[in-house]
Design a protein around this nucleic acid. Structure first.
Length: 510
DNA sequence: GTCGATGATTGAGT
DNA sequence: ACTCAATCATCGAC
Protein backbone atom coordinates (compact mmCIF):
# COMPACT_ATOMS: atom_id res chain seq x y z
CA UNK A 1 0.00 0.00 0.00
CA UNK A 2 2.69 2.43 0.92
CA UNK A 3 4.94 2.79 -2.04
CA UNK A 4 7.74 4.64 -0.48
CA UNK A 5 8.51 6.74 2.51
CA UNK A 6 8.72 9.92 0.58
CA UNK A 7 5.32 9.47 -0.92
CA UNK A 8 3.82 8.81 2.46
CA UNK A 9 5.48 11.82 3.86
CA UNK A 10 4.10 14.06 1.20
CA UNK A 11 0.63 12.65 1.53
CA UNK A 12 0.65 13.01 5.24
CA UNK A 13 1.97 16.48 5.08
CA UNK A 14 -0.66 17.45 2.62
CA UNK A 15 -3.31 16.02 4.86
CA UNK A 16 -2.00 17.84 7.84
CA UNK A 17 -1.82 21.06 5.96
CA UNK A 18 -5.34 20.81 4.68
CA UNK A 19 -6.87 19.69 7.92
CA UNK A 20 -5.02 21.95 10.21
CA UNK A 21 -5.85 24.91 8.07
CA UNK A 22 -9.53 24.53 8.77
CA UNK A 23 -9.04 23.94 12.42
CA UNK A 24 -6.73 26.86 12.76
CA UNK A 25 -9.01 29.06 10.79
CA UNK A 26 -11.83 28.09 13.08
CA UNK A 27 -9.69 28.81 16.07
CA UNK A 28 -8.62 32.11 14.67
CA UNK A 29 -11.96 33.39 13.65
CA UNK A 30 -13.94 32.10 16.57
CA UNK A 31 -11.30 32.01 19.27
CA UNK A 32 -12.47 28.54 19.97
CA UNK A 33 -10.27 26.08 21.77
CA UNK A 34 -8.62 23.45 19.73
CA UNK A 35 -10.44 20.18 20.04
CA UNK A 36 -7.74 17.73 20.83
CA UNK A 37 -10.11 14.88 20.13
CA UNK A 38 -10.24 15.76 16.49
CA UNK A 39 -7.69 15.38 13.82
CA UNK A 40 -5.08 16.56 13.39
CA UNK A 41 -4.70 17.57 16.98
CA UNK A 42 -5.55 14.16 18.32
CA UNK A 43 -2.21 13.10 16.98
CA UNK A 44 -0.74 15.37 19.53
CA UNK A 45 -2.52 13.88 22.48
CA UNK A 46 0.62 12.08 23.39
CA UNK A 47 2.44 15.33 23.24
CA UNK A 48 0.41 17.07 25.84
CA UNK A 49 2.77 19.93 26.11
CA UNK A 50 1.94 21.22 22.71
CA UNK A 51 -1.75 21.06 23.31
CA UNK A 52 -1.41 22.83 26.61
CA UNK A 53 0.70 25.47 25.06
CA UNK A 54 -1.75 25.88 22.26
CA UNK A 55 -4.60 26.43 24.63
CA UNK A 56 -2.53 28.68 26.79
CA UNK A 57 -1.56 30.81 23.86
CA UNK A 58 -5.09 30.69 22.67
CA UNK A 59 -6.26 32.14 25.94
CA UNK A 60 -3.77 34.98 26.02
CA UNK A 61 -3.41 35.57 22.33
CA UNK A 62 -6.56 34.99 20.38
CA UNK A 63 -4.66 34.86 17.15
CA UNK A 64 -2.07 32.60 18.54
CA UNK A 65 -2.39 29.75 16.05
CA UNK A 66 -0.73 32.03 13.62
CA UNK A 67 2.08 32.75 16.00
CA UNK A 68 2.96 29.42 17.43
CA UNK A 69 6.38 28.04 17.04
CA UNK A 70 7.23 24.42 17.59
CA UNK A 71 8.98 23.08 20.63
CA UNK A 72 12.47 21.84 20.31
CA UNK A 73 13.49 18.23 20.23
CA UNK A 74 14.15 18.02 23.93
CA UNK A 75 10.67 19.11 24.79
CA UNK A 76 9.27 16.71 22.31
CA UNK A 77 11.20 13.90 23.87
CA UNK A 78 9.98 14.85 27.29
CA UNK A 79 6.44 15.06 26.08
CA UNK A 80 6.48 11.51 24.84
CA UNK A 81 8.23 10.28 27.93
CA UNK A 82 11.64 9.76 26.50
CA UNK A 83 13.48 12.30 28.55
CA UNK A 84 14.71 12.26 32.11
CA UNK A 85 13.94 15.90 32.54
CA UNK A 86 10.38 16.61 33.58
CA UNK A 87 8.29 18.19 30.91
CA UNK A 88 7.16 20.93 33.24
CA UNK A 89 10.73 21.97 33.83
CA UNK A 90 11.44 22.20 30.19
CA UNK A 91 8.27 24.03 29.44
CA UNK A 92 9.04 26.61 32.06
CA UNK A 93 12.24 27.40 30.26
CA UNK A 94 10.76 27.50 26.88
CA UNK A 95 11.71 28.94 24.48
CA UNK A 96 15.20 29.47 25.78
CA UNK A 97 16.11 25.83 25.86
CA UNK A 98 19.27 24.72 24.23
CA UNK A 99 18.98 21.56 22.25
CA UNK A 100 21.17 19.05 23.92
CA UNK A 101 20.04 15.79 22.44
CA UNK A 102 22.22 13.82 20.15
CA UNK A 103 21.32 14.32 16.55
CA UNK A 104 21.40 10.68 15.63
CA UNK A 105 19.24 9.65 18.57
CA UNK A 106 16.76 12.29 17.70
CA UNK A 107 16.60 11.14 14.14
CA UNK A 108 16.08 7.56 15.21
CA UNK A 109 13.28 8.49 17.56
CA UNK A 110 11.73 10.47 14.83
CA UNK A 111 11.83 7.54 12.50
CA UNK A 112 10.14 5.29 15.01
CA UNK A 113 7.34 7.64 15.85
CA UNK A 114 6.84 8.46 12.24
CA UNK A 115 6.57 4.91 11.11
CA UNK A 116 3.98 4.19 13.73
CA UNK A 117 1.79 6.97 12.56
CA UNK A 118 2.12 6.79 8.84
CA UNK A 119 -0.01 3.73 8.36
CA UNK A 120 -2.95 5.14 10.24
CA UNK A 121 -2.66 8.33 8.29
CA UNK A 122 -2.72 6.69 4.94
CA UNK A 123 -6.41 6.49 4.25
CA UNK A 124 -7.05 9.90 5.66
CA UNK A 125 -4.42 11.34 3.42
CA UNK A 126 -6.69 10.94 0.45
CA UNK A 127 -8.68 13.88 1.64
CA UNK A 128 -5.80 16.27 1.23
CA UNK A 129 -6.77 19.00 -1.12
CA UNK A 130 -5.09 21.77 -2.92
CA UNK A 131 -7.62 24.08 -1.40
CA UNK A 132 -6.53 23.12 2.04
CA UNK A 133 -2.93 23.66 1.22
CA UNK A 134 -3.58 26.98 -0.34
CA UNK A 135 -5.68 28.03 2.59
CA UNK A 136 -2.75 27.43 4.80
CA UNK A 137 -0.54 29.16 2.33
CA UNK A 138 -2.69 32.21 2.66
CA UNK A 139 -2.80 31.98 6.41
CA UNK A 140 0.90 31.59 6.65
CA UNK A 141 1.47 34.69 4.64
CA UNK A 142 -0.73 36.61 6.99
CA UNK A 143 1.07 35.17 9.94
CA UNK A 144 4.38 36.18 8.52
CA UNK A 145 3.05 39.64 7.95
CA UNK A 146 1.95 39.92 11.54
CA UNK A 147 5.21 38.65 12.82
CA UNK A 148 7.13 41.01 10.67
CA UNK A 149 5.03 43.99 11.56
CA UNK A 150 4.16 43.42 15.14
CA UNK A 151 6.12 40.78 16.84
CA UNK A 152 9.42 40.94 15.12
CA UNK A 153 9.75 37.33 16.08
CA UNK A 154 11.83 34.70 14.42
CA UNK A 155 10.40 31.24 14.02
CA UNK A 156 12.27 28.67 16.00
CA UNK A 157 12.35 26.31 13.10
CA UNK A 158 13.28 27.78 9.83
CA UNK A 159 13.96 24.91 7.55
CA UNK A 160 13.89 25.15 3.83
CA UNK A 161 11.66 23.08 1.63
CA UNK A 162 14.63 21.18 0.31
CA UNK A 163 15.51 20.31 3.86
CA UNK A 164 12.00 19.03 4.39
CA UNK A 165 12.16 16.92 1.28
CA UNK A 166 15.39 15.49 2.55
CA UNK A 167 13.74 14.72 5.83
CA UNK A 168 10.94 12.97 4.06
CA UNK A 169 13.38 10.43 2.77
CA UNK A 170 14.62 9.74 6.23
CA UNK A 171 11.37 9.72 8.05
CA UNK A 172 9.93 12.85 9.45
CA UNK A 173 8.43 14.08 12.61
CA UNK A 174 4.70 14.35 12.44
CA UNK A 175 4.54 16.44 15.54
CA UNK A 176 6.96 18.92 14.11
CA UNK A 177 5.36 19.41 10.79
CA UNK A 178 2.67 21.66 12.09
CA UNK A 179 4.82 24.65 12.34
CA UNK A 180 7.92 23.49 10.65
CA UNK A 181 9.35 24.62 7.40
CA UNK A 182 6.58 23.28 5.24
CA UNK A 183 4.42 25.79 6.98
CA UNK A 184 6.93 28.47 7.66
CA UNK A 185 8.26 28.54 4.18
CA UNK A 186 5.28 27.33 2.26
CA UNK A 187 5.49 29.05 -1.05
CA UNK A 188 3.63 28.88 -4.27
CA UNK A 189 6.50 26.95 -5.70
CA UNK A 190 6.54 24.67 -2.71
CA UNK A 191 2.88 23.87 -3.06
CA UNK A 192 3.32 22.92 -6.64
CA UNK A 193 6.36 20.89 -5.78
CA UNK A 194 4.43 18.89 -3.28
CA UNK A 195 1.49 18.49 -5.57
CA UNK A 196 3.64 17.55 -8.50
CA UNK A 197 5.31 14.87 -6.48
CA UNK A 198 1.90 13.70 -5.44
CA UNK A 199 0.57 13.68 -8.96
CA UNK A 200 3.57 12.07 -10.52
CA UNK A 201 4.02 9.36 -8.00
CA UNK A 202 3.26 5.91 -9.25
CA UNK A 203 1.91 6.88 -12.60
CA UNK A 204 3.17 7.95 -15.93
CA UNK A 205 3.52 11.62 -16.35
CA UNK A 206 2.27 11.81 -19.85
CA UNK A 207 1.75 15.45 -20.59
CA UNK A 208 -1.88 15.87 -21.37
CA UNK A 209 -2.96 18.31 -23.97
CA UNK A 210 -4.87 21.14 -22.50
CA UNK A 211 -8.48 21.37 -23.45
CA UNK A 212 -9.67 23.94 -25.92
CA UNK A 213 -11.37 25.85 -23.17
CA UNK A 214 -8.19 26.07 -21.18
CA UNK A 215 -6.26 27.18 -24.20
CA UNK A 216 -8.80 29.85 -24.86
CA UNK A 217 -8.38 31.20 -21.40
CA UNK A 218 -4.62 31.13 -21.63
CA UNK A 219 -4.47 32.65 -25.07
CA UNK A 220 -6.95 35.25 -24.03
CA UNK A 221 -4.69 36.31 -21.22
CA UNK A 222 -1.65 36.07 -23.45
CA UNK A 223 -3.10 38.39 -26.01
CA UNK A 224 -5.37 40.59 -24.03
CA UNK A 225 -3.20 41.19 -21.06
CA UNK A 226 0.36 40.22 -21.44
CA UNK A 227 2.65 37.48 -22.68
CA UNK A 228 4.42 38.07 -19.40
CA UNK A 229 1.74 37.54 -16.82
CA UNK A 230 2.26 38.66 -13.31
CA UNK A 231 2.31 36.22 -10.47
CA UNK A 232 -1.22 37.24 -9.64
CA UNK A 233 -2.36 36.60 -13.16
CA UNK A 234 -0.66 33.24 -13.25
CA UNK A 235 -2.33 32.27 -10.05
CA UNK A 236 -5.66 33.39 -11.37
CA UNK A 237 -5.16 31.36 -14.51
CA UNK A 238 -3.98 28.34 -12.62
CA UNK A 239 -7.12 28.44 -10.53
CA UNK A 240 -9.34 29.12 -13.47
CA UNK A 241 -7.83 26.39 -15.60
CA UNK A 242 -7.11 24.11 -12.71
CA UNK A 243 -3.52 23.88 -13.77
CA UNK A 244 -0.42 24.17 -11.71
CA UNK A 245 1.21 27.51 -11.40
CA UNK A 246 4.21 26.02 -13.10
CA UNK A 247 2.16 24.68 -15.96
CA UNK A 248 0.85 28.15 -16.59
CA UNK A 249 4.36 29.51 -16.53
CA UNK A 250 5.57 26.84 -18.90
CA UNK A 251 2.69 27.42 -21.21
CA UNK A 252 3.44 31.11 -21.44
CA UNK A 253 7.10 30.43 -21.94
CA UNK A 254 6.38 28.01 -24.74
CA UNK A 255 3.87 30.37 -26.22
CA UNK A 256 6.30 33.22 -26.24
CA UNK A 257 8.95 31.08 -27.78
CA UNK A 258 6.75 29.56 -30.42
CA UNK A 259 5.23 32.82 -31.43
CA UNK A 260 8.69 34.31 -31.64
CA UNK A 261 7.80 37.12 -29.36
CA UNK A 262 10.93 37.71 -27.46
CA UNK A 263 10.43 41.30 -26.56
CA UNK A 264 7.40 42.69 -24.86
CA UNK A 265 6.03 45.40 -27.05
CA UNK A 266 2.41 46.18 -27.00
CA UNK A 267 1.53 45.59 -23.46
CA UNK A 268 2.22 46.93 -20.11
CA UNK A 269 3.65 44.72 -17.49
CA UNK A 270 1.65 45.54 -14.44
CA UNK A 271 3.70 43.38 -12.22
CA UNK A 272 6.93 45.12 -12.89
CA UNK A 273 5.72 48.42 -14.17
CA UNK A 274 7.74 47.99 -17.30
CA UNK A 275 6.31 49.74 -20.24
CA UNK A 276 6.70 48.45 -23.74
CA UNK A 277 9.18 50.09 -25.97
CA UNK A 278 6.86 50.49 -28.83
CA UNK A 279 3.15 50.19 -29.07
CA UNK A 280 2.86 48.99 -32.58
CA UNK A 281 5.94 47.24 -33.69
CA UNK A 282 5.75 43.53 -33.59
CA UNK A 283 9.19 42.30 -33.07
CA UNK A 284 9.18 39.32 -35.23
CA UNK A 285 7.29 36.93 -37.33
CA UNK A 286 4.67 34.70 -35.94
CA UNK A 287 5.55 31.16 -36.44
CA UNK A 288 3.71 27.96 -36.42
CA UNK A 289 1.51 28.75 -33.50
CA UNK A 290 -0.71 30.90 -35.62
CA UNK A 291 -1.40 30.00 -39.13
CA UNK A 292 -3.16 31.67 -41.97
CA UNK A 293 -6.56 30.40 -41.10
CA UNK A 294 -6.56 32.71 -38.17
CA UNK A 295 -6.33 35.80 -40.23
CA UNK A 296 -9.96 36.72 -39.95
CA UNK A 297 -9.83 36.50 -36.26
CA UNK A 298 -6.82 38.72 -36.29
CA UNK A 299 -8.62 41.29 -38.29
CA UNK A 300 -11.47 41.12 -35.91
CA UNK A 301 -9.13 41.62 -33.05
CA UNK A 302 -7.67 44.64 -34.66
CA UNK A 303 -11.12 46.05 -34.61
CA UNK A 304 -10.95 46.45 -30.92
CA UNK A 305 -9.70 49.46 -29.16
CA UNK A 306 -6.20 50.53 -29.13
CA UNK A 307 -4.36 49.42 -26.11
CA UNK A 308 -7.39 48.04 -24.38
CA UNK A 309 -8.92 45.20 -26.27
CA UNK A 310 -12.30 43.87 -25.48
CA UNK A 311 -12.73 40.76 -23.58
CA UNK A 312 -16.16 40.28 -24.80
CA UNK A 313 -17.13 38.36 -27.84
CA UNK A 314 -14.85 38.88 -30.74
CA UNK A 315 -17.66 38.65 -33.22
CA UNK A 316 -17.98 42.06 -34.72
CA UNK A 317 -21.56 41.59 -35.70
CA UNK A 318 -22.48 41.29 -32.11
CA UNK A 319 -21.36 44.77 -31.35
CA UNK A 320 -23.82 47.52 -31.69
CA UNK A 321 -22.14 50.87 -31.80
CA UNK A 322 -19.59 50.13 -34.40
CA UNK A 323 -16.55 51.87 -33.19
CA UNK A 324 -13.78 51.43 -35.54
CA UNK A 325 -10.71 52.13 -33.75
CA UNK A 326 -7.83 52.83 -35.69
CA UNK A 327 -4.67 51.26 -36.28
CA UNK A 328 -2.49 49.80 -33.60
CA UNK A 329 -2.21 46.30 -34.80
CA UNK A 330 -1.86 43.80 -32.07
CA UNK A 331 1.44 42.02 -32.21
CA UNK A 332 -0.23 38.90 -31.00
CA UNK A 333 -2.08 36.94 -33.51
CA UNK A 334 -4.92 35.03 -32.14
CA UNK A 335 -7.53 32.50 -32.94
CA UNK A 336 -11.05 32.42 -31.74
CA UNK A 337 -9.93 32.02 -28.22
CA UNK A 338 -11.47 35.20 -27.02
CA UNK A 339 -14.99 34.09 -27.53
CA UNK A 340 -17.05 32.93 -24.65
CA UNK A 341 -15.79 30.25 -22.44
CA UNK A 342 -18.49 27.78 -21.58
CA UNK A 343 -18.94 26.97 -18.00
CA UNK A 344 -18.39 23.36 -18.82
CA UNK A 345 -14.75 24.19 -19.11
CA UNK A 346 -14.68 24.36 -15.40
CA UNK A 347 -15.89 20.87 -14.91
CA UNK A 348 -13.49 18.90 -12.90
CA UNK A 349 -13.70 16.24 -15.51
CA UNK A 350 -11.94 18.61 -17.82
CA UNK A 351 -9.32 19.44 -15.32
CA UNK A 352 -5.92 17.99 -15.34
CA UNK A 353 -6.08 17.14 -11.70
CA UNK A 354 -6.02 13.45 -11.52
CA UNK A 355 -5.42 10.88 -8.89
CA UNK A 356 -6.58 11.56 -5.42
CA UNK A 357 -6.92 15.24 -6.02
CA UNK A 358 -9.53 14.96 -8.70
CA UNK A 359 -12.56 17.01 -7.84
CA UNK A 360 -11.24 17.69 -4.41
CA UNK A 361 -12.56 21.13 -3.84
CA UNK A 362 -14.79 20.77 -0.86
CA UNK A 363 -17.03 23.69 -0.15
CA UNK A 364 -16.12 23.23 3.45
CA UNK A 365 -12.86 24.95 2.70
CA UNK A 366 -14.55 28.08 1.50
CA UNK A 367 -16.37 29.02 4.62
CA UNK A 368 -13.43 29.05 6.98
CA UNK A 369 -11.42 30.78 4.35
CA UNK A 370 -13.98 33.51 4.11
CA UNK A 371 -14.20 33.80 7.83
CA UNK A 372 -10.49 34.15 8.07
CA UNK A 373 -10.44 36.89 5.52
CA UNK A 374 -13.28 38.71 7.15
CA UNK A 375 -11.61 38.31 10.46
CA UNK A 376 -8.43 39.63 9.06
CA UNK A 377 -9.79 43.13 9.09
CA UNK A 378 -10.47 42.73 12.78
CA UNK A 379 -6.95 41.54 13.31
CA UNK A 380 -5.68 44.59 11.56
CA UNK A 381 -7.74 46.88 13.69
CA UNK A 382 -6.57 45.31 16.87
CA UNK A 383 -3.01 45.18 15.78
CA UNK A 384 -3.12 48.73 14.61
CA UNK A 385 -2.27 48.03 11.04
CA UNK A 386 -3.52 50.37 8.43
CA UNK A 387 -1.97 48.59 5.56
CA UNK A 388 -4.84 46.35 4.70
CA UNK A 389 -4.37 47.15 1.07
CA UNK A 390 -1.08 45.40 0.99
CA UNK A 391 -2.24 42.06 2.14
CA UNK A 392 -2.99 40.87 -1.31
CA UNK A 393 -5.94 38.82 -0.27
CA UNK A 394 -6.10 36.29 -3.02
CA UNK A 395 -9.79 35.90 -3.31
CA UNK A 396 -13.07 36.38 -1.61
CA UNK A 397 -15.21 33.49 -2.49
CA UNK A 398 -18.59 34.62 -1.40
CA UNK A 399 -19.31 38.28 -1.30
CA UNK A 400 -22.36 40.26 -2.06
CA UNK A 401 -22.77 42.15 -5.24
CA UNK A 402 -22.36 45.41 -3.40
CA UNK A 403 -19.14 44.21 -1.89
CA UNK A 404 -17.91 43.21 -5.29
CA UNK A 405 -18.68 46.63 -6.67
CA UNK A 406 -16.86 48.29 -3.82
CA UNK A 407 -14.00 45.95 -4.20
CA UNK A 408 -13.80 46.40 -7.89
CA UNK A 409 -13.79 50.14 -7.51
CA UNK A 410 -11.05 49.89 -5.01
CA UNK A 411 -9.18 47.63 -7.35
CA UNK A 412 -9.59 50.10 -10.12
CA UNK A 413 -8.36 52.88 -7.95
CA UNK A 414 -5.23 51.02 -7.15
CA UNK A 415 -4.66 49.85 -10.65
CA UNK A 416 -5.21 53.35 -11.85
CA UNK A 417 -2.04 54.39 -10.12
CA UNK A 418 0.07 52.08 -12.10
CA UNK A 419 -1.74 51.84 -15.33
CA UNK A 420 -0.43 52.65 -18.72
CA UNK A 421 0.40 55.93 -20.24
CA UNK A 422 -2.97 56.27 -21.84
CA UNK A 423 -4.45 56.66 -18.45
CA UNK A 424 -1.61 58.49 -16.88
CA UNK A 425 -1.83 61.21 -19.44
CA UNK A 426 -5.56 61.45 -19.33
CA UNK A 427 -6.75 64.66 -17.75
CA UNK A 428 -9.19 64.35 -14.93
CA UNK A 429 -10.49 67.83 -14.62
CA UNK A 430 -13.84 67.41 -16.19
CA UNK A 431 -16.43 65.44 -14.38
CA UNK A 432 -17.37 63.70 -17.54
CA UNK A 433 -13.87 62.78 -18.29
CA UNK A 434 -11.81 60.01 -16.92
CA UNK A 435 -14.59 58.57 -14.92
CA UNK A 436 -13.59 55.45 -13.20
CA UNK A 437 -16.31 53.17 -14.32
CA UNK A 438 -17.73 51.16 -11.46
CA UNK A 439 -19.03 48.55 -13.78
CA UNK A 440 -16.00 46.48 -14.07
CA UNK A 441 -13.37 45.00 -11.93
CA UNK A 442 -9.81 45.26 -12.84
CA UNK A 443 -7.92 42.17 -12.02
CA UNK A 444 -4.79 42.51 -14.00
CA UNK A 445 -6.58 44.34 -16.69
CA UNK A 446 -6.79 47.96 -17.39
CA UNK A 447 -8.72 50.52 -15.51
CA UNK A 448 -12.08 51.15 -16.96
CA UNK A 449 -12.45 54.68 -18.05
CA UNK A 450 -15.54 56.08 -19.57
CA UNK A 451 -15.30 58.02 -22.71
CA UNK A 452 -14.98 61.70 -22.15
CA UNK A 453 -18.24 62.25 -23.91
CA UNK A 454 -20.00 59.31 -22.45
CA UNK A 455 -21.31 58.48 -19.05
CA UNK A 456 -22.18 54.95 -18.18
CA UNK A 457 -25.83 54.44 -17.58
CA UNK A 458 -28.09 51.48 -17.39
CA UNK A 459 -26.68 48.32 -16.01
CA UNK A 460 -25.11 48.44 -12.65
CA UNK A 461 -24.02 44.90 -12.44
CA UNK A 462 -20.44 43.92 -12.29
CA UNK A 463 -18.58 42.46 -15.15
CA UNK A 464 -15.66 40.72 -13.68
CA UNK A 465 -13.61 41.00 -16.72
CA UNK A 466 -11.16 43.66 -17.60
CA UNK A 467 -10.94 45.16 -20.96
CA UNK A 468 -13.69 47.64 -21.19
CA UNK A 469 -12.31 50.05 -23.70
CA UNK A 470 -10.46 53.18 -23.05
CA UNK A 471 -12.11 54.69 -26.05
CA UNK A 472 -10.05 57.75 -26.45
CA UNK A 473 -11.24 58.28 -29.94
CA UNK A 474 -14.91 57.74 -29.41
CA UNK A 475 -16.79 60.21 -31.54
CA UNK A 476 -18.60 62.90 -29.65
CA UNK A 477 -21.29 62.94 -32.28
CA UNK A 478 -22.85 59.80 -30.97
CA UNK A 479 -25.69 60.20 -28.57
CA UNK A 480 -25.41 56.75 -27.27
CA UNK A 481 -22.94 54.06 -27.50
CA UNK A 482 -23.57 50.55 -26.54
CA UNK A 483 -22.14 47.18 -27.11
CA UNK A 484 -23.13 43.74 -26.19
CA UNK A 485 -21.21 41.52 -23.98
CA UNK A 486 -21.68 37.94 -23.24
CA UNK A 487 -18.98 36.99 -20.86
CA UNK A 488 -18.90 37.59 -17.20
CA UNK A 489 -15.86 36.27 -15.55
CA UNK A 490 -15.89 36.25 -11.83
CA UNK A 491 -12.33 36.37 -10.71
CA UNK A 492 -13.37 35.93 -7.14
CA UNK A 493 -14.90 32.59 -7.86
CA UNK A 494 -12.62 31.82 -10.74
CA UNK A 495 -15.66 31.18 -12.78
CA UNK A 496 -16.63 32.23 -16.20
CA UNK A 497 -20.25 32.37 -17.08
CA UNK A 498 -22.30 33.59 -19.93
CA UNK A 499 -24.32 36.56 -18.90
CA UNK A 500 -25.74 38.24 -21.96
CA UNK A 501 -26.39 41.91 -21.64
CA UNK A 502 -25.68 45.26 -23.08
CA UNK A 503 -23.70 48.15 -21.89
CA UNK A 504 -25.13 51.48 -22.77
CA UNK A 505 -23.19 54.67 -22.71
CA UNK A 506 -25.06 57.87 -23.07
CA UNK A 507 -23.59 61.05 -24.28
CA UNK A 508 -23.65 63.19 -21.19
CA UNK A 509 -23.51 66.35 -23.24
CA UNK A 510 -26.52 65.37 -25.29
C1' DG B 1 6.39 5.48 -39.77
C1' DT B 2 6.59 10.48 -40.48
C1' DC B 3 5.74 14.89 -39.02
C1' DG B 4 3.77 18.80 -36.73
C1' DA B 5 1.97 20.38 -32.38
C1' DT B 6 2.70 20.86 -27.72
C1' DG B 7 3.57 19.98 -22.68
C1' DA B 8 7.57 19.46 -19.99
C1' DT B 9 12.53 19.53 -18.80
C1' DT B 10 17.08 21.32 -18.57
C1' DG B 11 20.82 24.58 -18.34
C1' DA B 12 22.52 29.14 -18.68
C1' DG B 13 21.84 33.89 -17.83
C1' DT B 14 19.87 37.70 -15.18
C1' DA C 1 12.65 33.19 -9.15
C1' DC C 2 12.17 34.22 -13.72
C1' DT C 3 13.35 34.01 -18.55
C1' DC C 4 15.16 32.18 -22.88
C1' DA C 5 16.69 28.61 -25.81
C1' DA C 6 17.25 24.05 -26.88
C1' DT C 7 15.61 19.78 -26.41
C1' DC C 8 12.93 15.74 -25.14
C1' DA C 9 8.66 13.04 -25.07
C1' DT C 10 4.24 12.22 -26.41
C1' DC C 11 0.02 12.54 -29.11
C1' DG C 12 -2.68 12.67 -33.15
C1' DA C 13 -3.29 13.28 -38.07
C1' DC C 14 -1.83 11.50 -42.28
Amino acid sequence: MIHNRCECGIRNRMLILSQMSQRLVDAVQGFSPIDTNKEPFSFLNSVSWRCQMMEQHLHHHPYHPLFLAPPNEQIFDAAIGESDTPLSTLVSREPAIATQSDEQQTLQKRRITTNLKIDSMWELSKSATREGIETLYFMNNQRKAIIARQLKAIPIFDLSLSRILTELNEGFDLTKMYFSSAVENLTRHGIDQLLNLEKNSGSNRTPARFSKEIKKILIDSFIRKSPYPSETEKERLSRLCKLDYKQVSVWFANKRMRTKIHTPTNFHDYSTGKTPISADSPTSNFASEFTSNHTSAVRSEQGSFSGSPFTISSVDSEREGSFSPDNSPSPYLMDDAISGVPKSSLDTSQAKFGHSLAGAYPSSCEQPLNRLRENWAVCDDILGSQSSGSHAIPSIRSSTKAEKVTRSMDTNSRIGDMTNTNLASRPATDKNMSTICPLSSGGCGKTVVANQHMTPVGKTSVIHRPGFPIDQDAPASLDTYSFKYEISQDEEKCETTRTPGTFIYQNSSA
